[in-house]
Amino acid sequence: MRIKLDFVIHWLWAIAFAILTLSGLAMVGAKYGWILNWDIASADYIHRVAAMFFMILLTISIGQEAVKAVKNDKNKLTWGIIGPKGYGLFNFITSVIFTITGVIIWVGHEYNMASVAFSLYIHEKLTYLVIIGVIWHIYVKAYALIWPEKKKLVNNNE
């Protein structure tokens, strides 16, 4: 069976997203640190590495959509993580906002602390929105969780 790029990217994205959310939430504040046992240093390191991986996946997905657009291919990718409408569009917009605010937080410390503070605020509040979005996505696609029934062998002589 041919494994498609968008299928692989979808699940790598889910893993990266989960890692980013967990490590990011641990850094929000004193009420949240218990999630990773207050190990903020590890949370920070994991968050940055996972964020770079996240950006690579986003770039590949955007590239895939751009190639489709150039070829004028209107077929929707089954496992596409970004798209022109619905959850794909929501994912695209939030990912771009996360990337921009994340970059500002990462590099802005020596330039402009006000922009870092504002970006941190946006970065944190958007996290809650996307967690709701992911739970909604799992609900909509909940049929994927159904365990396949074992087919009973029928004895034709009976």
Binding site: I15, L25, I138
Partner: peptide
């Protein structure tokens, strides 16, 4: 299926941990 269940469970864990916090 196990992989999908694991990922889904982890997201529900994150959501509940956020609500608890």
């Amino acid at each position: 299926k196990i992989f999908v269940w694991f990922i889904s469970t982890s997201f529900f864990f994150i959501a509940s941990a956020t609500l608890i916090a």
